[in-house]
Design a binder for these strands. Structure first.
Length: 593
RNA sequence: GCGCCCGUAGCUCAAUCGGAUAGAGCAUCGGCCUUCUAAGCCGAGGGUUGCAGGUUCGAUUCCUGCCGGGCGUACCA
């Protein structure tokens, strides 16, 4: 039986005659065996439900599906579990036991695990789902202002999702839907216009200060406010001199963004920018198309789409306003135009919006109106909301607090702290090395702090937690990696030189070996709901497993050549997995730190 | 008022979608550097998962009610 298909997966995997990198992962192998065992016993319609065991004493994997099956079949769960175990053809299991109300605990066999590791060589196996075209909308800063700490989430999460999707073979379009249009630009342009050419570049250096000076003038100086309003009109009507100023400002602001991306190692480039203003010409068309569909109603002078499912205060119908009473277009219109573009022009199969949770209702409306307008056929448009960052008192950051923490300042602080530490830990390295390492470690810590949290929940901003280098942090993973590099330096070999097979004698070796084989499972689980914290968790556990192995199974002191080669191979595979996994998170590794 | 999200150890967070005795990190306490980098390892203490019911073999997870917090709720984005 060369080909077998898994009922729950949308792909076919082969068991015998194909490349090692396409072998099933451990969980799938067990699932398949349990499913076959169920079949032999005449149990149908019950999934095996195989999971990694939560406690080591329960084996490596546990089968939870027997209890559900027993319920449907109205039989005793423990008896059924015993039968399933007897009918189970799973050579890779060293021991199977029925436990608790009807669990089957699977203890894996060291020899089989070693064989599977040998099949991989020094490669890392990845899931290979059916390729799709993804568009991922993330980052999307407002170009009026500089990015603040709140922008870290969409950048870190979005960029990581993009990297993982690409790694498993999907086509990915990065979309940076920057805010470069709107009434607020009036005062910025008016302010820009009254500067002397010599002052412009210095003034724009700090966008935050620029923005604040302009809005202060807008409030205090009536003549200035009047000019600002005039600029809005001129901007919207495409006045050439005004557009020139606007382009100058936008250019400068994009420059700022790209610098931050570069610093943060975010993979967005200028080519990924598809700004709000790019849809300007589409906005009247979208409204006209909605009109043709009979979806538009006028209300208080605004053009609206009312859908039954949306109600506002006091149960009143809640409109999706696509044109304001003053004739301007709100972001509902822009976002609809963006949906239309992404579905019809970009032809993406799945579009992910990595946008904060407060936008939930808005995006729900956007998708619903787009659906009603016929822009969507079978594409999947999904909002991936993330929680807000709160202040230490648990209250959310408000724009008016003015005390928002600039993203670039957080980066500087992270790098400064890392620099201090690496100088202290490794004084022999050159200053240049110190700086390079500090940049990678500091930025890694920041990004990992974001990624390792469940994306849905709000969390509290705290310098010391965000910039911690101990425990479950990126530096811990990077440190595990440097320890491995150090071993190879001292041994004077490179992973490519390694000969010999893997043998897993010590418990620490077996646990590390199993953990290594679970990488594709972690990726798969993380992609189910685009939760990168699951990948973080895996990498942390892998590092922990390695650290334990490192302490208990000395490598260079080992006199038995076979054992030493085996351990070096385990170390090499760990390093490889860590580097790839961290790469998926947008975090680099260093050879020393 | 209505809708969505949340409430877990002193603090910050997990818990792979209903599984076993709820896990980490930080902080606290105790061990481990003449041995591959101590950003580390080994161990200890710390919990009525906001409260009260319900569903079932089994609930942090699902349902109902209450308490507390956040966000949203027509022309800012």
């Amino acid at each position: 039986m060369p080909w077998v298909s898994l009922h729950h997966a949308d792909r076919v995997v082969c068991s015998a005659f194909c490349q090692p990198r396409f072998i099933m992962n451990l969980k799938e192998q067990i699932e398949l065996a349990v499913a076959q065992s169920f079949e032999r016993l005449g149990v149908t319609d019950s999934p095996p439900v195989v999971k990694q065991a939560q406690r080591r004493e329960f084996g490596h994997y546990q089968v939870n599906g027997v209890m559900g099956a027993a319920k449907t079949a109205k039989t005793n769960p423990r008896e059924l579990a015993t039968k399933v175990t007897e009918a189970l053809d799973l050579p890779m299991a060293a021991k199977l036991e029925v436990a608790g109300p009807g669990f089957v605990n699977v203890h894996l066999d060291a020899t089989s695990i070693a064989e599977q590791l040998d099949l991989l060589g020094n490669d890392v196996s990845l899931p290979s789902p059916e390729p799709r075209h993804f568009a991922v909308d993330y980052s999307a800063p407002n170009l009026m202002k500089e990015m603040h700490i709140g922008h870290l989430r969409t950048n870190a999460i979005g960029d990581s999702i993009v990297r993982v999707l690409e790694a498993v073979g999907h086509q990915v379009t990065r979309v940076n839907h920057v805010g470069d249009w709107g009434a607020q630009f009036g005062s910025l342009l008016a302010y820009l216009d009254q500067l002397h050419t010599t002052e412009i570049s210095t003034e724009l250096k700090d966008l935050e200060v620029f923005y604040q000076s302009a809005s202060k003038l807008f409030k205090s100086d009536e003549a200035f406010a009047e000019r600002a309003r005039g600029y809005v009109v001129r901007l919207q009507s495409g006045d050439e001199q005004c557009m020139k100023l606007w382009r100058q400002f936008i250019e400068e602001s994009i420059q700022h963004c790209q610098e931050v991306y570069k610093r943060l190692d975010i993979s967005l480039t200028r080519e990924d920018i598809h700004a709000e203003s790019a849809y300007n010409d589409d906005l009247p068309i979208v409204v006209a198309e909605l009109e043709q569909q009979g979806l538009i109603e006028e209300s208080d002078g605004a053009l609206c789409v009312f859908l039954d499912e949306f109600t506002g205060k006091e149960g009143n119908p809640l409109p999706a306003i696509v044109r304001k009473s003053d004739g301007g277009f709100p972001y509902m219109a822009t976002d609809l135009a963006a949906v239309r573009y992404r579905a019809e022009k970009l032809r993406a199969d799945t579009v992910l919006y990595v946008v904060g949770a407060p936008q939930q209702l808005h995006l729900k409306q956007v998708f619903a109106v787009a659906q009603a307008a016929g822009y969507l056929t079978d594409q999947e448009f999904r909002h991936l909301p993330f929680g807000s960052i709160m202040k230490s008192d648990g209250k959310p950051f408000k724009t008016r607090d003015g005390a928002e923490v600039k993203l670039i300042d957080v980066i500087d602080e992270a790098v400064a702290r890392a620099h201090q530490l690496v100088k202290e830990k490794n004084p022999d390295l050159s200053e240049e090395k110190h700086r390079t390492i500090a940049e990678i470690v500091g930025v890694g810590a920041m990004k990992y702090a974001e990624l390792s949290k469940n994306r849905g929940t709000d969390y509290i901003f705290d310098w010391d937690i965000l910039l911690s280098f101990e425990g479950n942090t990126a530096p811990y993973l990077q440190y595990a990696y440097t320890r491995i590099q150090s071993i190879f330096r001292k041994a004077g070999v490179t992973p490519g030189d390694l000969r010999g097979k893997i043998t897993l004698r010590e418990p620490a070796e077996l646990d590390l070996g199993v953990k290594l084989l679970q990488f594709p499972e972690a990726i798969e689980t993380a992609l189910e709901d685009y939760q990168m914290n699951i990948l973080c968790n895996y990498l942390y556990e892998l590092s922990g497993q390695f650290m334990s192995f490192y302490e208990h199974c000395h490598i260079l002191k080992q006199t038995d050549q076979g054992i030493q080669q085996s351990r070096l191979r385990l170390a090499a595979m760990t390093a490889n997995t860590l580097q790839q996994g961290l790469g998926f998170l947008g975090i680099k590794t260093v050879d020393r730190m």
